[in-house]
Structure formats: structure tokens, C-alpha cells
């Protein structure tokens, strides 16, 4: 009996700890976003972060988009040719890229490439006392370090997802039209007649915006909350990638159910 109640108490503690850490990260986010920056150079801080978060992620996003688009075209062609509807490859590729693959795969790549880098960078800043030293200089690290990184992530992610989808569709067109010999007109027209601006492109962008928000939030919080040792930073980096991936896949299901559930 005592064993059971102890288990229950343990479970409760575990739950409370997690609720507490969610609360802490929420307050953290609030402070980072809604505090007046008050730096004359906040624009250049944001630019720097857009560079390291967005521009440096471009290569991996473009390469992945290209290959995923090409693979989708090949697979779709192999299935659809059996029904003589290979013209629908364009439609299939475009819809799966815009609705799902674009936001989700870009989000996962973003978490692995930019999110882990953010966590490691902030965690190391904490380990080497740079964050404390900022505080003692009288600069709020939430404004100086966290806020620009957070906004850069939120801005960069939808742009990366759009580039991913476009490159994927172009890759599919390359494989489908030039290689597999799908009639170009039906490739594009089947796409155009089924892709809707608000429902497909718009919702895909909303998804990627949500993913960008969540991944960057997790990344900067994990870095800021990391135990200031080399092991702590490595753990935090791992947690960023794991939590971000789970969050992306879970949220994707919820968002898809809300956006496309009644179709």
C-alpha cells in the first residue's frame, strides 16, 4: 500500500515538474517577445540571426526539396500510370508537398540544422558565463540574445518551407516531364485545377509558421535552461531535436485534422 502511494506521489511530482517547466518556458517566451528591445542595432542583430538560421539552412532545404520532389514524381508515376492517369502526378506532388511534406520535412530539417545550433550556441554562452556577464553589464539576455534568434526562426521557417515546396515541384516537373515524358500541359493543369491558394498554399504556410514558432521556442528555451556543463549542453541539444520532432509531428496531425479534416 505504501509502495503504491509512493508511486502515485512520484507520478504527481513528475507531472508537476513538467507542468512547472512548461510554465517557466512560457514566461520565458513572453519576456523575450514582449519586452521592448531598446537597442539601436536590433535590426542588425536580427539580420545576423536570419543569416545563420535562414541563409545557412538554405542548402540543405533546397537539396532535400529537390530530391523529395523527384522521388515523389517517380513513385506517383509508377502508381498512376497503371490507371492511365499519369497526368495527375503534378497534382499529387503539389498537394503532398504543399500540405504535408513542405512544412513537416522543412520543420524537421530546421530543427536538426538550426534548432540544435541555437541550443548549443545559447547553452555554451551560458556555460562560459557570457549570459551572466551580459546581465551584469546591464543587458537583458532575453532581449539581446533570445529575442532576435526567436524572431529570426519564426520569419525564416515559412520562407524555407515555401522554397522547399517550390524546389520540390520543380524537381518533380523535371523528372515527370523531361524524363518520364508526362505531357507538360496536363502536368501543370492538373496541378492548377486542384491546388487552391488559401486552402492548400495558405494552410501549408500556417503550418510552417506554427512549426517555426514551436521549434525556435523549444531551441532557445532548451539552450537557456541547459545545465551549464558540456554534458548539459549536449543533453539540451539532443532534447531540442527530439522535442521539436515530436512537436512537429504531433502538431501536424492536429493542424491537418482542423484544416483538412472535413474534406
Amino acid at each position: 500500500m505504501t509502495g503504491l502511494s509512493e508511486r502515485l506521489a512520484q507520478l504527481g511530482r513528475f507531472g508537476l515538474e513538467h507542468v512547472q517547466s512548461i510554465g517557466r518556458s512560457g514566461v520565458f517566451l513572453f519576456l523575450a517577445i514582449f519586452s521592448r528591445a531598446g537597442f539601436s542595432n536590433r535590426f542588425s542583430l536580427l539580420t545576423h540571426q536570419l543569416y545563420s538560421i535562414g541563409v545557412l539552412s538554405l542548402l540543405i532545404v533546397i537539396m532535400s526539396g529537390l530530391f523529395i520532389g523527384m522521388v515523389l514524381a517517380l513513385q506517383g508515376y509508377n502508381i498512376l500510370i497503371r490507371y492511365g492517369s499519369e497526368g495527375a502526378v503534378g497534382q499529387m506532388v503539389a498537394l503532398s508537398l504543399l500540405r504535408e511534406m513542405g512544412p513537416v520535412v522543412t520543420g524537421l530539417l530546421f530543427a536538426g540544422r538550426a534548432g540544435s545550433a541555437l541550443t548549443a550556441e545559447i547553452g555554451l554562452m551560458k556555460t562560459t558565463e557570457q549570459l551572466s556577464s551580459l546581465e551584469m553589464i546591464g543587458v537583458d539576455p532575453l532581449k539581446r540574445i533570445i529575442a532576435p534568434r526567436f524572431w529570426a526562426g519564426v520569419i525564416a521557417m515559412p520562407l524555407l518551407a515555401a522554397i522547399f515546396s517550390l524546389v520540390g515541384i520543380l524537381g518533380a516537373a523535371m523528372v515527370g516531364i523531361d524524363w518520364l515524358g508526362i505531357y507538360e500541359g496536363s502536368f501543370w493543369s492538373s496541378m492548377q485545377s486542384s491546388v487552391r491558394l488559401v486552402n492548400d498554399i495558405g494552410n501549408g504556410m500556417i503550418k510552417s509558421l506554427v512549426f517555426g514558432f514551436v521549434v525556435t521556442w523549444i531551441s532557445v528555451y532548451q539552450g537557456y535552461d541547459a545545465v551549464p556543463t558540456s554534458e548539459g549542453v549536449s543533453r539540451a541539444t539532443t532534447r531540442t531535436v527530439v522535442y521539436s520532432s515530436m512537436a512537429i509531428l504531433g502538431l501536424d496531425f492536429i493542424l491537418t485534422a482542423v484544416m483538412f479534416g472535413d474534406l
Partner: peptide, 10 residues
Amino acid sequence: MLFQSGALFT
């Protein structure tokens, strides 16, 4: 404050 590690911005 002078930190143990110096804590210069790298």
C-alpha cells in the same frame, strides 16, 4: 563583475 572564465563574447 569579473567572471571566473572571463566570459568575453567570443
